[in-house]
Each structure stands twice: as C-alpha cells, then as structure tokens.
Design a protein around this nucleic acid. Sequence first.
RNA 1: CGGGGCGUAGCUCAGCCUGGUAGAGCGCUACGUUCGGGACGUAGAGGUCGCACGUUCGAAUCGUGUCGCCCCGACCA
Length: 497
Amino acid sequence: MAKHAISPTRSEDYPEWYQQVVRAGELAESSPVRGCMVIKPHGFALWEQMQGILDGMFKATGHRNAYFPLFIPLSYLEQEAKHVEGFAKECAVVTHHRLELNAEGRLIPTGKLEEPLVVRPTSETIIGAMYAKWIQSWRDLPVLINQWANVVRWEMRPRVFLRTAEFLWQEGHTAHATEAEAVEETLRMLDIYATFAERDLAMPVWKGPKPASERFPGAVDTYSIEAMMQDGKALQAGTSHFLGQNFARAQQISFADAEGGESFCWTTSWGVSTRLIGGLIMTHADDDGLVLPPRVAPEQIVLLPIFRSDDDRAAVMACCESLKAKLEDCRWRNEPLRVRIDARDIRGGDKVWQHIKQGVPLRVEIGPRDLAAGAVSLTRRDASPKDRQSLPLETFVAEAANLLEDVQQQLLSRAVAFREAHSACLNSQAEIHEAFADTGTIGFAHVHVADDPAVAAALDPLKVTVRCTPMDWEDEPGTCLFTGQKVARRSVIARSY
RNA sequence: CGGGGCGUAGCUCAGCCUGGUAGAGCGCUACGUUCGGGACGUAGAGGUCGCACGUUCGAAUCGUGUCGCCCCGACCA
C-alpha cells in the first residue's frame, strides 16, 4: 500500500501534485480541444454547490439573473479603449456561419460574416449596450443583474481550473445613478466574495484594492480577494470592479436625472469563476487528495456498508437506510445533511480510498460489529485515514451537524494558520529580495508600497506583484520601499497564479 | 509566441542507439479463495507504436514534415 494516495506529494512536485489531485478526485479532465477542460460530475457538483450559495447571496442583495449572448459584435469590443487593449490578444473570433463539403469530403467554412463576432471574454460591452436601451430615467436605477455563463479567453498556457481557454463564471453588472452608490455596490460584492470564501470555502482571503497595473481593462478601481495556496503563491479568487463612467460614456448609458439633466450612469462588474475550485484544492487538499469543506461538499457524509453474508447484508443495509433518513432530517447551516450510501460491489479498501481522494468530509463504516454494538465507525477527512473512532449510532446522529461544523472550522483555522506561518512584515528592499530569492517560507510579504509603476518594475525580476492592499488592516503609515512616497498602510506582495 | 522534453494497451512506461511488423506493471472481464483500511490465484479481452511523406526487401526503431501534450519563460480570472 502506498504511503500516500497522491504521487508525487506536495513537497516533491507541487504543480504535478495539483494535476494528480484533480485527476484522482475525478473533478476534471483535459479535452480534445486545446486549453479546454471537461468538468466531470464530481467537479460540476462542487461548482453547483458554490453556485447555489452565491446565487442566494446575490438575490438576497437585490440582484436578478439574466442571460446575454455568447457572441459579441467586434465593434462593441472596440468601444472602450482600455478594454480593447486588455482583451484583444486573447479573443476567439467567429468569422463564418456555414460549412460546405468540398471535393475531398472536408468541411470548409463559408458564408463569411459581414462583421466578425467575438466569443465573449467578458460581457461589459454587450450588457452595456442593452443597459443603454433599458435605462432612461433615474427611476430605472439601479439595474442589478447577474449572469451565470461561460467565457472564452484564448490562453497561451492553460492549467486546469486555474487558467483554461473556456471557463464558467458569474458576472454581475450593475448601473447606478451616483458614484457613491456604485462604489458601495463594488464593495458590497467584494464583501460577499470574501464572506463566501471564508465562511463556505474555508479559504481565508485578503480583500482590497489592486494597484493600477493589475486593474481590469477599463475599470477605475479593481478590488480582489487574494488567497494563499499551499505553495505560498497568491490566487486571485474573485474581483469586483468600479467602472466609473468609462463604459457609460463609451456606450452612452445615460439617464434623465431628478434635476432634469442628462447624466451618465456609474457602473460596476464583479465575478468569480471555476477557478475557485482550483483555489479550494490548493488550500485544503493533502497528499491523499481532495479535502472538501462540508459546506460545499456535494456529499457531506458517505455511509459504507460492510458485510459478508446475505444475512449481514440485509441488516447492515437496513441500518444504513435508517441512518441516512435520520441524518437527512438533521440540518446544518440551514440545510439538510447530504448523505450517500455507497453500496457498490467493489472492494472496501478501494471504495474508502476513492472517497478519500474525492474529499468527502465524513466517512462512516457500518458492519456487523457496529450493528452488534449499536455503533458506527467514523473517520474524518481532515484527520488521518487511520484515525477511526467508534461512537454510538444515536450519538453520531445527534452530533453529525456539529461534526460538519467542526471539520469546516478546522479547515479554516488550518488555512489561516498556514497563511500566518508563511507571511511576514518586511521593511526593506533587502528583506524582500531575501524573502523571494528562492522558494523560502515567505508567501505573502506585508510591505509599504505605493501604487506606482516603479514598484511593479522593481518587483518584476522577483516575479512578485502587488496583490492588493487589504482593507481590514489597521492604518500603518509608512513610506514606499521603492519610491519613498507616503502610504497609509501595508500591501500584500507575492508570487501569484 | 520563445526555450526544453515527450507522444507505444484505459493508465504509467520498457523496446528505438545496433530496422526483421510489440512487451511489463497497474487497471478491466470471468471464476475461485478472500474481505473491518489500496488482496491473491487461474483464465481472458485490449495496441494499424500521434499523423503524413520518405529511405529500405522490410520501419515503433532511420530521415523530413506536421499535429498534440507537458515543463520553464512572456500574458492573464
């Protein structure tokens, strides 16, 4: 028996470990199309859990879902200069609308489009075009819409979940009458992302504004949540953009204000993607594979019946069915527990390891011995696979929700502890160079840096960037280590995905 | 798009240098013995060796081209 289910381990080869976890956990596979992934049922179920929670949070803050076209007229993308610059290099373009068989029996594109269509890399422009039609009066505002969709960005170097040519996401697009309202919206959604990441994904994040060099093309301000992966690198896990009136001016999104004048709207956009799955993996998974926070685990508890004889089988299965029903009557964080009985006729060891690799939070074995004792054998995914405990069945039912909560908290506090252990306040250029010279113990450095191109240029040789300036941190006035400018507080700098 | 590596069974790979048209382990199927932490035995299925062209009596093996994948850079959610 291998010591670990995943080979190589994190310390042996982190990028390869990541790919093996994805594979062993049956989350996704690469596809015949370069840079695109096939999200398998377990991976998609995980995404659906995330979607469900986020969608509820969006709706609770007044947003409604809609759907806009996959194809964007080329001319739309040209409307906002910075936006063009940012996305032009990675657009898939549709130029034809028909295929014809040639003499060799090959299909040849014909029916050239008058105006090429861009497969959306993001939807600001096409949604803005509709908003320009929909919004006429200040009474029409705010417009608060979200869309769940796929987008395409033709990436040079794909990595499953982290950077693929096509990915799934949600993009919120809102229009407001005043700057203050739009800023408030931008920060509200940033907060929702941060809350979701920490409360539901057990993934601690720093949230705050990004420097100009890291801004969304066309935005006035970009805010992000940044999480630390187990190799110390930062993952931008969500972004919220204050677009000012840039798109409104470019697209004539205007309204008759209460004073009788004509004003441009203030707009925002914000999104999280299937990249979160990559973040989840690199935050919690271990050398035995996935470790899922119960809150988003498609199956929170798996019941594993163990039996040899037909008599045992009947009794054990009956016990499992009744236990499942009891557990499903329990609620944790306002939802019924998600329980599966895995009675597949495969070897017990294989079955157990499959659930380990898929990250199921709680495994419960029930065999004749347990039956006789009125007990169950419980193993937590956040503990060692050998760390199995027996407890009375009724106790388990009573404690199941608490156990899930405990696993969830355990994952969060572990991740927080990891981040703290790999973060440090640095106060000189020399310390920064030392910290990032090679793969040291420093992932995030907390430093005073100005929002200035000179900073990005100075950090570039170290492959380090300013991730964000966390808003939750205390003010701590200082001077930029690279430009000498006064800054109010520290920022996070790190290598990143 | 630059630099490096690799395409042989579902997976991981050997064979290639020194051409003679395929092998191992794992997985899969059946049966038996097993079974409370990745079992064992027996029997079996499965590959036009990425693709194309060339050299040759003969190509997985040599040459040219091409496609794809992985790693490192530049770019990005």
